[in-house]
Design a protein around this nucleic acid. Structure first.
Lengths: 123, 123
DNA sequence: CAGGATCCACCTTGATACTG
DNA sequence: CAGTATCAAGGTGGATCCTG
């Protein structure tokens, strides 16, 4: 179905907004991962929401989904597409800006630094 | 109150996410504007939501709010802070990325191009 | 002119249980 | 192991009316 945005910023926000998407992009930026790997990396996400967020990223062309095995148990591996990798500069800059702002505001805290996204810059 | 984010991307998203915030930042990036100017620029926003989004941007240190006049009718002028202007590079890059993606996907349409944000790059 | 107060609809996320 | 189905809760945006 047709999606209309007022500007490119809104279109980009639509793709990367989602409670777990920045973390998913960070982990998948390091290397392709299986579902169980992602669940281990993000212990607090429910499997329903994990699937949901991954499906949205897949539908938006950011990640690929590859199935291995014809019988259960399956292996499902997710990896970034070239379009997904092309978000690297933006994610790193957003991460740095957020850290800069947090450094000025005592009540904003950030757990992991932008180094987690740096592998996205290796194309 | 204390806000904790897993990474800087989430912190940045928190600030610029909101149905009308990208458009508000675009307009305020061109020049400071009064409330009635913004309502004219964004005819479909209700005054409640306009006030709400502006208050959030103000609370997050992105815009300044200045009141002129001691009796009604007041004049309220909003302008970007230095921190708000420092979002310029990110907004332009996000806008360009969104346009690039839209150009590859037939069902994604973008009304205004990234030129609207370019004044943010003049510091 | 600018914005506060209510009340409301929707969307996103989450808890839980179940399937191939 | 990976994913679906159902139901519930909270937050965000919106319609409308009212105030200094």
């Amino acid at each position: 179905m047709k999606q209309t945005f007022n500007n490119g910023v809104e279109a980009t926000l639509k793709v990367i907004s989602g409670k777990w998407k920045p973390q998913l992009l960070c982990h998948l930026g390091n290397r392709p991962q299986r579902t169980c790997d992602l669940r281990q990396a993000l212990p607090d996400i429910s499997q329903k929401v994990l699937t949901q967020q991954l499906r949205e990223l897949e539908r938006d062309g950011i990640i690929d989904r590859q199935i291995t095995g014809e019988q259960a148990p399956f292996k499902v591996t997710y990896s970034l597409t070239p379009l997904g990798r092309s978000l690297g500069q933006i994610l790193v800059q957003m991460s740095i800006w957020g850290e800069h702002r947090a450094s000025e505001l005592p009540d904003v805290e950030i757990t992991n630094d932008h180094g987690g996204f740096s592998r996205l810059l290796e194309n």
